[in-house]
Design a protein around this nucleic acid. Structure first.
Length: 592
RNA sequence: GGUCCGGUAGCUCAGUUGGAUAGAGCAACAGAUUUCUAAUCUGUCGGCCAUAGGUUCGAAUCCUAUCCGGAUCACCA
């Protein structure tokens, strides 16, 4: 039981005794540092029951608690805030509960009985992953970890957009200029190679457009008439007809891309339980549309296209099926959602997709609801904002994309350079050093991105992101390494951490308080799909610990009982840092 | 133009269901070291919480309007 639950129960008893009411409005908050106490009751809401001033009410409740609850050591009332101080024994008890819980703060996967599907990443196969995908992948993976820690049965899925005109563009350029080039021959990752041909297509296409415009053709017409685009469209048609040559090339080039993606995903540390390919799902959903037509939820225009009118809901009319009977994006998403629900009966379906698709998901949910699918309420669009760079906005159209592989490599390099400048890690073997540089570089990147509220547009500065001071991933990693180092030394001296019965000091109580919050933070982060909550929590804990560590000795402490108790506390803090950063997908080293 | 999201220190960001004097980090400045790992810690400086009204014991937080920035409103995905 956490502190708030405990004290809340006691105050409820108090309210019953004093005011003879059940379900009194109780509002708690952490006691601010400038006041004495551990937890604070806001007295204002209770004044309606007590019919007294906030100060009098607070005092009244405080006196009752002090008289009736042995764990309450003292209280004070400041301007209608009742600050309650709990006994050291209470905190000692909390610590021993934390210690006895082997997987403190984390539920075992599947114990909640709820199935949650998280779709994230969802790349196109015509170019490598970029900075925007990094935010997507980190968010998706972390949210999945957090939900799993809440005991849900989490299924991570990736929906790969492997078909369409964009792939045909790469394929066409490869046919024109490739001369049989392969990733092996070029010595290049497959996704990068295919991306290069996409760029080549774009160059050719633009050149043809300007040539046409020079002969007096309008820009719009030129875009439609350029031979390159006509060829690409022709290729798409052939693909849909199952033309063997086109399909074979498509398979080959997509294969290259997947090999490349696998490397990137592995480096990022993300994974999937199931991968869906759009080439298999793009025809889904037509039955649902027909069903909607029968029910009269949708309507057909003269040209045969199918629409839904959402103007009554403040939205527009939305196309669901083209006049030629083919699917659009929405049709497909209706189909996959339906298929997934039939298959898994999920209690929640989370789409990690950029905020440029907010409207799409609003419509998706609404359409499903109008069709009578109750589970449309289980859909949650985890929307995130763009990642900007100091030099300007990161948009693929503007050609300033930061490639995901390059970025990660750059982070690792910076970690290496900084370590060497500071003369760290000298006594550590080469291969372990390599591992550490990777851990630090990626930890910096992940923490920097995940600590920001997803829906906000954020600024990522590669130069400043590896700052080993302050609110950063490396700071957490370093703190963990120090804790482990002290514990190793203790082990050498045959010291076994234990909670014991020594009365903890104020500093220790402060840390136990922080630790005891962890399960609640995990629960809240799960409910709000928010890795940022975890990040903020673990940073606060780490900071608190660092000040403590700086001026309290542990191994030099002469009282053995206190020493062992501090070691125990140390161990638990290390464990929580490791667990919490794990929820963010950040690895934490034993030494660095 | 309609809809959605954002605007908090010079910079990057926190700020719980409305709660006490709005917080961190970076940067700047001033300190602390024979370390249990100083990649650390302490202190100072820094604010019309975009603006104006409203709701109430109490507003960065809720409501209304306005300003600024972004996204979106395709027979693209």
């Amino acid at each position: 039981m956490n502190t708030e639950q405990f004290i809340s129960q006691k105050v409820a008893e108090c309210a019953k005794a004093l005011y003879n009411t059940e379900g009194a409005p109780l509002q708690f908050q952490k006691t601010r540092k400038e006041f004495e106490g551990d937890i604070t009751l806001v007295a204002f809401p209770l004044t309606k029951l007590s019919r007294k001033s906030p100060e009098q009410t607070g005092t009244e409740v405080g006196e009752w608690l002090k008289a009736n609850v042995p764990q309450v050591e003292a209280f004070n009332v400041v301007k209608g805030f009742l600050n309650i101080k709990l006994t050291k024994d209470f905190w000692l008890q909390q610590l021993s509960e934390i210690v006895s819980d082997k997987s403190f703060g984390v539920q075992q996967k599947g114990t909640s009985g709820k199935t949650v599907m998280v779709e994230y990443s969802s790349p196109n196969t015509n170019k490598p992953l970029h900075l925007g995908h990094i935010r997507n992948n980190l968010l998706g993976y972390s949210v999945a970890q957090i939900l799993e820690a809440n005991g849900h049965n989490v299924i991570k899925v990736n929906l790969v957009n492997d078909r369409g005109i964009h792939i045909c563009k790469s394929m066409l350029a490869w046919k024109k200029f490739g001369n049989g080039e392969t990733p092996q021959l070029a010595g290049k990752k497959g996704d990068h190679l295919v991306g290069d041909y996409y760029v080549k297509f774009d160059k050719l296409y633009k050149q043809q457009i300007s040539e046409l415009m020079a002969t007096g053709v309008s820009e719009d017409d030129a875009k439609k008439q350029a031979p390159a685009i006509i060829e690409a469209q022709d290729m798409l048609l052939k693909w849909e007809q199952g033309d063997k040559e086109v399909v074979d090339l498509w398979k080959t080039m997509n294969g290259w891309v997947y090999e490349g993606f696998d490397v990137t995903y592995k480096q990022l540390g993300v994974s999937f339980d199931k991968i869906y390919y759009e080439s298999n799902t793009y025809l889904l959903g037509k039955e649902i549309v027909n069903d909607g037509l029968k029910k009269g939820v949708f309507f057909k225009k003269e040209d045969g296209s199918v629409w839904i009118d959402l103007t009554a809901d403040g939205l527009d009319q939305k196309l669901l099926l083209r006049s030629d009977g083919t699917s659009v994006y929405m049709t497909q998403d209706l189909g996959t959602a339906h298929q997934r629900f039939e298959e898994y009966k999920f209690g929640e379906l989370i789409y990690v997709v950029g905020n440029e698709q907010n409207y799409h998901f609003q419509v998706l949910k609404l359409v499903l609801k109008k069709l009578g699918y109750d589970w449309s309420d289980y859909i949650y669009h985890l929307s995130y904002g763009m990642v900007e760079l100091p030099e300007g906005k990161m948009k693929s159209r503007e050609g300033t994309v930061v490639d995901a592989d390059d970025l990660m490599e750059g982070m690792i390099t910076t970690a290496r350079e900084t370590s060497q400048e500071l003369g760290k890690l000298a006594g550590i073997p080469q291969d372990e050093q390599q591992q550490l540089f990777r851990m630090i570089g990626l930890g910096a990147l992940k923490y920097f991105i995940l600590k920001v509220d997803p829906k906000k547009t954020m600024l990522f500065d590669p130069k400043e992101s590896i700052d080993f001071n302050g609110n950063t991933g490396p700071f957490l990693q370093y703190t963990h390494a120090r804790i482990r180092s002290v514990l190793r030394k203790a082990q050498e001296q045959n010291l076994q951490p234990t909670t014991g019965t020594a009365v903890p000091g104020e500093r220790e109580v402060e840390l136990v308080k922080n630790l005891a919050d962890f399960p609640q933070v995990v629960a809240q982060a799960g409910a709000e799909h928010s890795p940022a909550l975890i990040a903020n929590y673990v940073y606060e804990l780490t900071k608190e610990f660092n000040t403590y560590y700086h001026d309290v000795s542990i191994l030099k402490e002469e009282n053995t009982e206190i020493k062992l108790q501090r070691l125990e506390l140390l161990q638990q803090i290390g464990n929580v840092i490791k667990t919490a950063t794990g929820l963010l997908g950040i690895e934490v080293p034993e030494r660095m």
